[in-house]
Design a protein around this nucleic acid. Structure first.
Length: 573
RNA sequence: GCGGGUGUGGUCUAGCGGUAGGACCCGAGCCCCCCAAGCUCGUGACCCGGGUUCGAAUCCCGGCACCCGCACCA
C-alpha cells in the first residue's frame, strides 16, 4: 500500500493536512504544513526559472476577486454554471439541458433554468426511475461575493488568466509593441466543486502557474526557438486515441500538433516536469476531445503523469485560446485589445472617395447634415465609382434614405499609404496545476530501502537541503557540527541539526522527509578537520573538509550529481 | 447531491453501556554507537452537536470528514 505510506508521511511529517481540522475540516481545502509549504515554493521557483528567466515572460500578480463583467466577457458566467435538476425520489442529479435533449429529442436548448423548468412541467418529464423532478437550478462553479457596501457582484477567479488578459493594453506597451511576448502569474484560483475527492487533485482553492503567450496568428506556425526542442521526443495521445512517440518536429510536420508554438511549450513543459522529479516515461500528452474542451479553446493538450494511486492525472493544460478572450474583453469593455502588424512593405492604394460639401449640405439638411457626412464617409469605394457614373448616391441616415446629387458631393482621388494593419493576437496558454504536480513529485519520490522510507526528492526541490549531526553527543563534536550547520545556513540553504538518538535513527528521520545530504562530525573530524558527507539515495559517504562541505552541498543542490562529486574527489584527493 | 462503508493520542489499533489499554512516533535523561531495534521516565485520544440512559467511545438522530459506487468535472 505505497499510497497509504505516502499519506502517512505527508501528514505525520508535516507536508500536508486538511484545512480547518479543529472544526472538522472542509473538503476541498488543504493546508501545506511546514515542509509542504517549502516544497511548493521550490517547485514554483523552478517554474519561474523555466518561464520567467528562460522564456523572458515577466511575472504579474493580479487580484483573486474580479467584478462580474470580467467573467461575463470571458464566458465563465454563462458557461461555467450548469443547469441541473435532481430527482425527488432517487436523488439522481442530471445536467438539465442535456437530460431534456435526450428525453425530448430537442436540440440546442437554452440553458436558462426557467425555460427548462417550463419544459419539464409542460411535457411532464420524469426521472428515469419514474420519480418526480425537482426544481431546475443553476450550479455555478464560481464562488460569488460582493464588493464594497454597495454590493457590486464579484467572483473569485476560476483561473488566473483573466487578470492577465484584461491588462493586455498595458502589457503590449510594456513589451514595446512587439509580438510574441508572454506574461506569467502564479496564484490561487477557486472552483466550487460539487464534490471534491482525491485529496490534492480536486481542490476548491488551488494554485495555478499560468503563462499567457501572445502571438501573431500568422506567425504561430513557427516558434523562433524551436530548434532547441525539435528533436525532443514526446509521447502523444491525439483524439484518435492511438499512442505515438514522436519528436516535436515530426509531430508538427505530420499535423498531429497544429503548430510549433504548441509543440515548443509541450516540450518545455516536459522538461520542467522532469526537472522537478517526474520521470520522462511517466509523462504523456493527451489531446482534449472536442466536447471536453473549454469554451475558449481551439485545441488543448494535457500533460498527464502516471500515478500509482490515480492512474493518469492531468497536471498541465496547454491550450490554444486563439483570440477568444481578447476579443471578448474588447467587445464588452470597449477598449481596443489589438496589436499592429507592420507590412514588409507599405502598401499604397489609389482610392476614390466621396467628399461631402458641407456648404450645401448644411443649409439644406440642417441638423441632419453632420450625420449625412458621416454616412457618406463610410460608403465603400464602389459607391464613389457609381456616383461618378450616375451623379447620384443614396445614403441611410437613421433609417431614412437620403438621395444626394452632384451639388452635395465631389469625388476625390487620393493615394492611401498603409504601413500595416491591426489584428487581435492569439494566446497560447500553458497552465500548470501546482498542487497536482506537487502530489506527483511526492509520489514519484517515495521509495523504500531496508524497510525504511526514503523520499528521493531532487535536491533542487527538497525543502531541507542538509542535516548536520555530531556522531555522538559530546561537546567537542557538537561545537564543530554547529559551526558547519551555521555555515550551511549562511549560504542560503535550509538545514536541520540533530544530536539526539542513535545516528541510524537520525539518518532515517531525515531520509523520510527527503533531506538529500547529511553531514556527520566524528572523532576523526577533531584530528584532521574532515567530516563525512552522506548521500541520501545511496547512503554512501565521502570524507571532505569541514570548510568545504557547505559549498559542496550548494553545488550539489544546484545540479552537480553525486557521481560528479565523487569523480572530483578522486581526481584531487 | 444520492447510496453504501468508516471515524479512539501524531500514526496504527484494543475496548462495543460502568468513565479508555497497547505498539510505533514524539519529548527528557542514561548509554556513546555510522545507518530506525538498549534502559528509565514522560506528554498525548474516544470527529462535532443533540437525544435515550443513573451512566454513552459504545445505542438512536443530525452534521462534518474520509473511502467506494453513481452523478458532476471550463
Amino acid at each position: 500500500m505505497p499510497q497509504d505510506v505516502l499519506q502517512d508521511i505527508l501528514v505525520r511529517r508535516g507536508f500536508l493536512c486538511p484545512s480547518y481540522e479543529v472544526y472538522g475540516g472542509v473538503s476541498g481545502f488543504y493546508d501545506y504544513a511546514p515542509l509542504g509549504g517549502m516544497l511548493k515554493r521550490n517547485i514554483e521557483n523552478l517554474w519561474r526559472r523555466f518561464f520567467v528567466v528562460e522564456e523572458g515572460f515577466f511575472e504579474v500578480d493580479t487580484p483573486t476577486i474580479a467584478p462580474e463583467q470580467v467573467f461575463v466577457a470571458s464566458g465563465h458566467v454563462e458557461n461555467f454554471a450548469d443547469p441541473v435538476v435532481s430527482c425527488r425520489k432517487c436523488g439522481t442529479t442530471y445536467r438539465a439541458d442535456h437530460f431534456l435533449q435526450e428525453k425530448l429529442g430537442a436540440e440546442n436548448l437554452s440553458p436558462e433554468p426557467e425555460v427548462l423548468q417550463r419544459l419539464i412541467e409542460e411535457r411532464g418529464v420524469r426521472c428515469n426511475c419514474g420519480g418526480e423532478l425537482g426544481e431546475v437550478r443553476r450550479s455555478s462553479l464560481m464562488f460569488s461575493t460582493t464588493i464594497g457596501a454597495g454590493g457590486r457582484r464579484g467572483y473569485l477567479r476560476p483561473e488566473t488568466a483573466q487578470g492577465m488578459f484584461v491588462m493586455f493594453p498595458r502589457l503590449y506597451s510594456f513589451y514595446r509593441k512587439k509580438l510574441p511576448f508572454g506574461v506569467v502569474q502564479i496564484g490561487r484560483a477557486y472552483r466550487n466543486e460539487i464534490s471534491p475527492r482525491q485529496g490534492l487533485l480536486r481542490l476548491r482553492e488551488f494554485t495555478q502557474a499560468e503563462a499567457e503567450i501572445f502571438v501573431d496568428p500568422e506567425e504561430k506556425r513557427v516558434h523562433p526557438g524551436f530548434g532547441r526542442y525539435a528533436g525532443e521526443r514526446l509521447r502523444l495521445v491525439p483524439r484518435s486515441g492511438e499512442v505515438l512517440e514522436l519528436s516535436a518536429k515530426e509531430a508538427v510536420e505530420r499535423g498531429i500538433l497544429p503548430h510549433e508554438f504548441l509543440a515548443y511549450y509541450m516540450a518545455h513543459t516536459r522538461r520542467f516536469l522532469m526537472e522537478v522529479g517526474i520521470p520522462g516515461e511517466r509523462i504523456r500528452f493527451r489531446q482534449h476531445l472536442k466536447d471536453e474542451m473549454a469554451h475558449y479553446a481551439e485545441d488543448c493538450w494535457d500533460a498527464e503523469v502516471l500515478t500509482k494511486r490515480y492512474g493518469w492525472v492531468e497536471v498541465v493544460g496547454i491550450a490554444d485560446r486563439t483570440d477568444y478572450d481578447l476579443r471578448a474583453h474588447e467587445s464588452l469593455s470597449g477598449v481596443e485589445m489589438r496589436a499592429f502588424r507592420q507590412f514588409r512593405e507599405a502598401v499604397t492604394k489609389r482610392v476614390m472617395r466621396l467628399v461631402p460639401n458641407m456648404q450645401v449640405l448644411g443649409p439644406e439638411f440642417r441638423g441632419l447634415a453632420p450625420r449625412i457626412a458621416e454616412a457618406v464617409e463610410k460608403l465603400p469605394e464602389e459607391a464613389a465609382e457609381e456616383f461618378e457614373r450616375t451623379g447620384r448616391v443614396e445614403v441611410d441616415v437613421e433609417g431614412e434614405k437620403v438621395v444626394l446629387g452632384e451639388r452635395h458631393l465631389r469625388v476625390e482621388r487620393v493615394e492611401l499609404r498603409q504601413t500595416g494593419e491591426k489584428f487581435t493576437p492569439h494566446v497560447i496558454e500553458p497552465s500548470f496545476g501546482i498542487d497536482r504536480i506537487l502530489y506527483a513529485v511526492l509520489e514519484c519520490a517515495l521509495a523504500e530501502r531496508e524497510g525504511k522510507r526514503v523520499l528521493r526528492l531532487r535536491p533542487q526541490v527538497a525543502p531541507v537541503k542538509a542535516a548536520v549531526f555530531p556522531l555522538v553527543s559530546r561537546e567537542e563534536l557538537e561545537e564543530v557540527a554547529l559551526e558547519v550547520f551555521r555555515e550551511i545556513k549562511s549560504q542560503g540553504m535550509p538545514a536541520v541539526y540533530d544530536a539526539s538518538d542513535s545516528i541510524g535513527r537520525r539518518y532515517a528521520r531525515v531520509d523520510e522527509i527527503g533531506v538529500p545530504f547529511a553531514v556527520t562530525v566524528d572523532f576523526e573530524s577533531l584530528e584532521n578537520g574532515t567530516v563525512t558527507l552522506r548521500h541520501r539515495d545511496t547512503a554512501e559517504q565521502v570524507r571532505v573538509g569541514a570548510k568545504e562541505v557547505p559549498g559542496l552541498i550548494r553545488r550539489l543542490c544546484e545540479g552537480m550529481s553525486w557521481d560528479e562529486l565523487r569523480e572530483k574527489l578522486a581526481a584531487a584527493p
